[in-house]
Design a protein around this nucleic acid. Structure first.
Lengths: 335, 335
DNA sequence: TTAATACATGGAATCGATTCCATTAAACGA
DNA sequence: TCGTTTAATGGAATCGATTCCATGTATTAA
């Protein structure tokens, strides 16, 4: 593989001149430009990105962390982030945690060892760990859709509390008073998705609805998890089932509904189900999902805007308004 | 950020000794080991991956190229690839082409500029381009599920020809003789998915089924594309519709079925539809999809095995058999 | 004519790790 | 006792680009 030295030699110039040519610096004569370009063409030369990164102390790489890319919500989110960052000449490195905080640690270590210039965390396992990184690299860590109780990390946050309240109110006015609640985090501990859980708790208290511990589910992510919830509900029912289920994800909702129907429980007639995300398949499900739509593209752009502004110091056109970041209840058939 | 020099100074040893310690080389006295570890702890030192990569001429990064990560098939494929590569200490960089060969070019350039040690291409746009890279880096380029007419690139290939034939035969024995055919590539040109197309053509010829040009669709990927196909079919129908549709993707099939049903065309009664991939959602669709399952995990592992063997020179346990790589027709309700 | 700019260029120093080479000290064998 | 391994170690050279510094030439101003 050719190096800049070989190009310099072949073109009969110094390495400095080649570098200047490559980086569009002024003061390279027309004569040498041609010679250099010829040498580059002949040797099929491409500068080593690694060497450039070492010298310039910047990689033009951004890390993106999600829990699971097979979740269509995260896949779309990644897509939006990548499109936007590519526009600015950045490359994206995604990693998945699969709920494993060791994977999160490895991911964040990329900040330390300079493999990435910054990170967007769309999923966090160990809040203390993330916080310590955010303190060491305040400009380089952006939280996306994840809350941080100290509020000292730059974040893009949506009003999940209000959206959850809205959905619950919708169910309530439709006459549902017996709720089951599913979260991807941990119901008992303040964790991922806590503001949704808080909304559920506040709502229940406000309307004096008792919370049935058997109808609370934590750490559910996939359609298979949803099916499992349905089975558990049925098994422990003693002839009482909830009349509405609030889920944390369309994937879970879809599995849940499927299993419910298989047991001759009709959705939405017997039980109403609300999804979350409005994933692409939500509308095509056996029972099209009533769900809360997340404004993926706006979220992605906003996070990228903040990060880019931090990194380059330049103003990035602020094209996302608060209005764009609103969550929205989409009413279909499942509730 | 601390460097190896600072560690050496703080520990009162030479940089060579620190490096030897870091890389578990012999001949570092217990005494110095402790001093070095102390210095590392105190300064919170992590070696710069970039510097290591430059010196060692290897990045431990593997690039994976797909057309669109929001396609659940590719998302799962990426997941399998990442899991396996992580096991061996490699990091994965995904990129999406979105059918744009310039993106493919940029992706492949990462081989030239040493950002990745190898690539797995699960999607190719410009075959000539890929071929030229594969010739320059024969050990570093693996094709996954993509055919290469010269057969001179290392690949993991499944028998899509046979699987398509099987599905078509299934439809035929069910009494369907009027086929529409959808591909993600280009029907007219040998391109992505050609062996499926070839199977369709051979099958039609063999059974003397005329091919209706209005029932051939190219470059379809999403559910929206599927809906569009349905509309086009209905619009140009003159009261004749196909009685079976072979699609290239469950996503397309789902959109197609949805739009068909909206127009009071029943699936499978009026028209049978066959999907492809057996994506997670296929079984939960309004009409559960009859589809061809791709053995994602086996495909991913096989590709990684080949690449790792090339790169490390060592034998990687060959855990994937040809049996594992079989495509399988999954019969549900849509056909 | 001379001083001050602007234009061009080569090459050493640098980024931060790894590795090879030279050197020394200790251990061993005879 | 001396020659030979084995164990430890420091530090220069290296990977391949960028940038700063020194130097030289051409152009412009006064």
């Amino acid at each position: 593989m050719a190096t800049i030295k070989e190009i310099a030699k072949k073109a009969g110039v110094g390495v400095g001149t080649v570098s200047r040519y490559l980086n569009d610096h002024p003061y390279v004569s027309e004569d040498k430009r041609k010679k250099i370009q010829n040498a580059i063409d002949e040797l099929d030369y491409t500068p080593s990105a690694i060497a450039t990164q070492l010298r310039s102390q910047s990689t033009k790489n951004i890390g993106v962390l999600v829990s699971r890319l097979a979740n269509p919500f995260f896949a779309e989110l990644f897509d939006s982030i990548e499109r936007k960052l590519n526009l600015y000449g950045y490359q994206v490195l995604v990693s998945q945690t699969h709920d494993d905080s060791a994977a999160e640690q490895r991911f964040l270590d990329q900040l330390k060892n300079h493999q990435v210039d910054g990170v967007i965390l769309a999923s966090v396992e160990n809040h203390e760990l993330v916080r310590s990184f955010a303190q060491t690299y305040p400009q380089k860590v952006i939280l996306l859709n994840e809350e941080n109780k100290y509020q000292d990390i730059q974040s893009v946050t949506l009003n999940h509390y209000q959206a959850t309240l809205d959905a619950l109110n919708y169910l309530f006015t439709q006459g549902h008073h017996h709720f089951a609640y599913i979260t991807g985090g941990n119901y008992a501990v303040k964790s991922h998705g806590y503001s949704r859980t808080k909304a559920f708790q506040d709502f229940s208290k406000q309307h004096q609805l008792p919370i049935n511990q058997d109808w609370l589910f934590s750490q559910k992510h996939t359609a298979a998890d949803g099916q499992e919830v349905a089975r558990s509900l049925i098994k422990n029912s003693n002839n009482t089932l909830p009349d509405a289920i609030f889920t944390n994800s369309d994937e879970v909702a879809i599995g849940l509904i499927d299993e419910l129907q298989k047991n001759n429980i009709s959705v939405p007639k017997d039980i109403a189900v609300i999804g979350y995300d409005d994933q692409p398949f939500a509308r095509f499900a056996a029972v099209p999902l009533t769900t809360i739509r997340q404004p993926i593209n706006a979220m992605a752009n906003k996070a990228v805007n903040i990060l880019l502004k931090n990194l380059t110091g330049q103003d990035v056109p602020e094209d996302i308004t608060n209005e764009d970041l609103k969550l929205k209840l989409i009413i279909r058939k499942s509730a």
